[in-house]
């Protein structure tokens, strides 16, 4: 799986998104992450592994309690990806805007002059 697919797969789960939202507020230990979700530690660890594989979370090796941190870079990739898609539609729709303006300025010539109409 490429990096973006990994990121999307990691974000597909609501618990993992909630973990990321918590980490956006600052680093936290696995225990601190488990508490608000009413989850067992192994379950949280499983989610964290998926997030780590996607590069969304890193875990400090220095401190004994190994706090987790949010890594925002892959999220930025996704935002850019979605933004490019959105921009391509925006381009298409602004062409439609221009055309609609034109039709409304010359309703007789454009709207009814060409093409079959399908209203009864």
């Amino acid at each position: 799986m490429d990096a973006l697919s990994l990121t999307f797969a990691a974000l597909a789960d609501p618990t993992r998104r909630a973990i990321l939202a918590r980490l956006a507020l600052g680093e936290a230990t696995v225990g601190e992450l488990a508490a608000p979700f009413d989850l067992r530690l192994p379950t949280v660890s499983k989610h964290l592994k998926v997030l780590q594989r996607a590069g969304l979370v890193s875990q400090s090796r220095k401190a004994q309690w190994r706090p987790c941190q949010l890594e925002a870079a892959p999220l930025k990739d996704i935002a850019q990806w979605a933004e490019a898609f959105r921009a391509s539609w925006e381009r298409q729709f602004s062409q439609l805007d221009t055309y609609l303006d034109e039709l409304q300025r010359e309703p007789v010539a454009r709207a009814t002059g060409r093409g079959k109409r399908h209203d009864k």
Binding site: R86, A87, E90, S94, D101
Partner: peptide, 10 residues
């Protein structure tokens, strides 16, 4: 007319 934030994607 053609600003780039008119289309919302969710």
């Amino acid at each position: 007319m053609t600003n780039n934030s008119k289309t919302q994607l969710t």
